[in-house]
Simulated scan of single mutants.
Amino acid sequence: MKIGTHDGTFHCDEVLACYMLKLLPEYKDAEIIRTRDLEKLKTCDIVVDVGTDFDHQRKRYDHHQREFKETFSSIKPAFGEKYKIKLSSAGLIYAFYGEEVIKEITPKECLLSTEDLKIIYKKVYDHFIEEIDAIDNGVPIASEEPRYKINTHLSARVGRLNPEWNSTKAIDTDDLFRQAMNLVSKDFLYTVNYFTSIWFPARDHVKNALESRFDVHESGKILVLKQFCPWKDHLFDLEEEMGLTNQIKYVIFNDKPESWRVQAVPVAPGSFVLRKALHENWRGFSLEALSEIAGIQGCIFCHASGFIGGNSTRDGAIAMAIGSLDA
């Protein structure tokens, strides 16, 4: 088996595309042919990022041609129309083969249903692949000039493995390409493992908290997690699935012995804008001063922005949430 891609300067998208293909049994032992010679590319079983041709049936996955318009939404319409960024070769390979790749590298003891796999597949695109697509296609991260630049992202680190323009040493660029594949493997495997083994198991904890929210407070706007876990993405997903969008205002969890946190829910994952911040009069106070102002025993602190607070007991944290809800 032969995987074809272009020679010369390599980029993160085709490096990652080749790496993902070699995770599949069919291409595990495939030779990677780096060339722009169309006759040589014709001998390859699958070609990525070169050849000016996109044809899934013939396993040709270039994205540079003028007429190419494919996005994750156009390949996977079941996920809606939110994806506007054109796919790179990494995005193309992931769109068509990503679910199989995830199944290959997921530990056998992690039994994923078809629906579970779809959730993880989408999250890996959102949190990893889309960034590669955007950078390779020159899509800016913001509509305005960013206040600072990120120079340590994966695409930049892959780029640094290319030979320097003024190097006089004889360099095996195919060996550098293999080094780049090893580099992307660490980030990709971490991301998939995180979403399958760490992030996804938290879904049931958040769902159980949502289903029992009226046991905490009659408003149903306060969640108490039985144990701390990655909850934000799950909360937004489950709210939408359960028809509860924007209803939950505070999430309470135990972070260490005799320490409970009450956290205000943001308007979106990653946002610093809150649905309802903690009580304005409490912000920036701590310990006895905060307990006296709030009229709640055991207060530890309330952040100056009102996004999070703490209490020594579960009931105290709930009281802080209720007091902020009614403010």
Results as ranks from 00 to 15, higher is better:
residue 186 K to V: 13
residue 257 P to C: 12
residue 7 D to T: 15
residue 187 D to E: 15
residue 71 T to N: 10
residue 234 H to I: 00
residue 324 S to F: 02
residue 266 P to H: 07
residue 7 D to C: 15
residue 137 N to G: 02
residue 158 V to W: 05
residue 304 A to P: 00
residue 207 K to Y: 11
residue 196 T to S: 07
residue 225 L to V: 03
residue 80 G to T: 09
residue 36 R to W: 08
residue 191 T to A: 03
residue 171 I to S: 05
residue 126 D to Q: 12
residue 142 A to D: 10
residue 68 F to E: 12
residue 100 E to H: 01
residue 27 Y to C: 08
residue 165 W to D: 11
residue 180 A to H: 02
residue 124 V to Q: 01
residue 263 Q to K: 15
residue 87 L to T: 07
residue 89 S to R: 05
residue 188 F to A: 09
residue 19 Y to L: 08
residue 285 F to Y: 13
residue 104 E to I: 01
residue 188 F to E: 09
residue 218 E to P: 01
residue 267 V to L: 09
residue 146 P to L: 07
residue 105 I to H: 05
residue 8 G to R: 11
residue 253 F to P: 03
residue 242 M to P: 01
residue 278 L to T: 13
residue 38 L to I: 14
residue 54 F to W: 14
residue 73 S to N: 12
residue 33 I to M: 13
residue 115 E to W: 06
residue 29 D to A: 14
residue 10 F to K: 13
residue 120 I to W: 08
residue 77 P to K: 09
residue 179 Q to L: 06
residue 89 S to H: 04
residue 16 L to E: 06
residue 127 H to Q: 11
residue 114 T to L: 10
residue 132 I to A: 04
residue 218 E to G: 06
residue 49 D to P: 09
residue 32 I to D: 05
residue 4 G to F: 10
residue 109 E to I: 13
residue 283 R to K: 13
residue 246 N to H: 09
residue 125 Y to L: 02
residue 150 I to Q: 12
residue 22 K to I: 06
residue 26 E to Q: 13
residue 148 Y to L: 11
residue 74 S to N: 06
residue 252 I to K: 10
residue 41 L to H: 12
residue 201 P to S: 12
residue 62 D to I: 10
residue 58 R to Y: 06
residue 237 D to C: 00
residue 204 D to A: 15
residue 89 S to D: 07
residue 13 D to P: 07
